[in-house]
Amino acid sequence: MQSYDLAEGSLRALNQALHDLKGLTNMTDWEVLNPRGAHAIAAGLDAPVTVHVRGSTGYYCAGMNKQATVHIHGSAGPGVAENMMSGTVIVEGDASQYAGATGRGGLLVIKGNASSRCGISMKGIDIVVHGNIGHMSAFMAQSGNLVVLGDAGEALGDSLYEARIFVRGSVKSLGADCIEKEMRPEHLALLEELLRRGLADHKARPEEFRRYGSARRLYNFSIDNASSY
């Protein structure tokens, strides 16, 4: 295992070393010590490696991730896994605002709670939150899946496109054009798979969730509005 202590080395040197892994395969297991809330730890990775961050991180940890698995053994600051392309990010604690924002692929698992704007503008990422999520989550979410084992805050899925949202607990309020939808067998199968991948299959069953999605009244062109354009 490669161990890097941020109390001794610089963040820039760590990220450069991780970026240099592109194409290499013999240093696949990394550990980062003393993160102390630093920004952009392990951001921009593009290699099939695993990075264990031993503590809490600041803004944008594992942002733009491709291929890598980043495991945060603490809580994550704003924008964890922002714009992730592929790979896996696991947060053992809580995540701050806009976790997984604009994510295009991969899997984000938050074992604690996520705060406001979780999955805002998500575009294909799968997000599994074991706890609760805050207000304005999945705002303008385009595709991908957001699974919440706990409760959702105000204005869930406001101005939603085609992302799917599954919530087990209560929803404080739904945002504009977000509605509850029927849970069909294919959704239960999808959710079973998401819970398994999201390390939550021992905590919840697919039948316990409700599904939310777009009513498709807001973003579709309607001929009745033609004179407005």
């Binding site: 102390r36 809330g37 630093a38 809490s56 991180t57 600041g58 803004y59 809580s75 600051g77």
Partner: peptide, 8 residues
């Protein structure tokens, strides 16, 4: 404002 401020 950030966890960094509390880390010490």
């Amino acid at each position: 404002s950030e966890y960094r401020a509390l880390a010490g």
